[in-house]
Design a protein around this nucleic acid. Structure first.
Length: 376
RNA sequence: GGGGGAAUACCAGAGUGGCCAAAUGGGGCAGACUGUAAAUCUGCUGACGUACGUCUUCGGUGGUUCGAAUCCAUCUUCCCCCA
């Protein structure tokens, strides 16, 4: 994997660059749709490419490990062949599940014991076996196994958790060095900066993770309950320390406004379930503001879903029709809204990139933020 | 013609003397959702008021009772059985 920084904005830390992987190039800033179970829910790969122009998608180690299991993924020849996705992929390590499935897990120095949310079966994730599993899955970018504490974690817990995450990180890189890709394409491993909302812990973590000479760096443990302003502050603290010549990935964020704020602070990569999940639940993100398509006001609105939209669904279908589908619980509503939202997110970061390259980012961001916060 | 049963809020349907402005579903309206245990979850849904509350409701009318959706009489409508 290679990253070349093309341009940094004059008035902020916003950057434009290109990541090159064995499955193709990724222009940054980039939004990566989340495809937990090796599918971006409700969207054909064809449409992700042709309509949304997604250049990289996520999958999740935890979910694929449990189902279909590594035997099947290995027999398929890796997740690219298994799912017929021929562009870059990134796998999350399962660290976030250690957080979100907190009721059914037990942390130790060794790793994390947990019960499957599917059948209750007992499992152990360690930094070593999570790397092995991600080798078997075969994504272009693998993530370190971390602990993601809640947003309101007290300082002593945050500090202890950070130490554990750092020890796990060293073990991840040891295992990474001991193992090879299985399918002939390279796999990068990104460390994850933690430290909750404590600037000194974030600084410490941002320094610590650099010792492994990674090809990219992630910022984790944000947008987990803390105020957005605190998140922005943490991003600023961390990005002031992370190397400029490597991509920076803000994990799990966020709203369109969150993303523009993070781009301004020097983040290059994003993923979030919001466009697909909120889409399934009837919320559309547009360049004119947010639409709750289930609202009665759209009942007889026969205008296009999004006149500025880049996907075919934006122009083929009307708001009244999409509302009808959503109210009726039709699966097509989820498909249309998901494709629209993913295409919108990718369009948004693409516009940001254009404006960074043209040195017009700051003014554009200002104007766009106002529109993004409107409710239609 | 005779006998039996039923009428409750937008719909279905509990309730069968006070704890009932009335369970529960559905429908309707609104909100939430941030490295996906989410095609999920939450709230509201007689009127007026932020709210304690006040007023009008359980087919119609008239009674009994301190008090009625609940008991009595009668009328209306619907359903079932017999002829």
């Amino acid at each position: 994997m290679k990253f070349s920084l093309q341009h940094t904005a004059a008035a902020s830390a916003a950057r434009a660059g290109v990541i090159t992987t064995d499955h193709g190039e990724i222009q940054t800033p980039v939004f990566m749709p989340v495809g937990t179970a090796a599918t971006v829910k409700g969207i054909f790969h064809r449409d992700l490419k042709q309509e949304a122009d997604a250049t990289i998608i996520l999958a999740n180690t935890y979910h694929l490990y449990l189902r279909p299991g590594m035997e099947t993924i290995a027999a398929a020849g890796g997740v690219h062949r298994f799912s017929s996705w021929d562009r870059p992929m990134l796998t999350d390590s399962g660290g976030f599940q250690v957080f979100s499935l907190a009721g059914v897990r037990k942390l130790s120095e060794e790793g994390c014991r947990f019960s499957s949310h599917i059948d209750g079966s007992k499992h152990l994730f360690t930094p070593e076996n999570v790397i092995d599993t991600q080798r078997t899955i075969g994504a272009d970018i693998m993530m370190a196994f971390d602990e993601c504490p809640p947003g309101d974690a007290p300082r002593d817990y945050a500090a202890k958790s950070l130490e554990l995450t750092h020890r796990w990180l060293a073990r991840c890189f040891e295992q990474y060095a001991r193992t090879q890709p299985h399918y002939g394409h390279a796999q990068a491993l990104f460390p994850i900066v933690q430290g909750c909302t404590y600037p000194d812990l974030r600084e410490k973590s941002a320094r610590f993770v650099q010792q492994f000479g990674a090809e990219g760096y992630a910022i984790g443990g944000l947008a987990v309950g803390e105020p957005a302003e605190v998140m922005y502050e943490m991003i600023g603290v961390v990005n002031a320390i992370l190397p400029e010549d490597k991509p920076r990935y803000l994990m799990g964020v966020g709203t369109p406004v969150n993303i523009l704020e993070a781009i301004e602070r020097g983040v290059d990569m994003f993923d979030c379930v919001m466009p697909t999940r909120n889409g399934r639940n009837g919320m559309l993100f547009t360049s004119q503001g947010v639409v709750n398509i289930r609202n009665e006001k759209w009942k007889n609105d026969f205008s296009p879903i999004d006149p500025d939209g880049t996907a075919f669904v934006d122009h083929v279908y009307t708001r009244a029709y999409l509302r009808h589908l959503a109210i009726s619980g039709e699966m097509m509503a989820a498909q249309i809204a998901s494709l629209h939202n993913v295409a919108f997110y990718i369009w948004l970061v693409g516009e940001a990139r254009k404006h960074i390259l043209a040195d017009t980012f700051a003014a554009w961001k200002e104007e766009m933020t106002v529109k993004l916060m409107r409710r239609l």
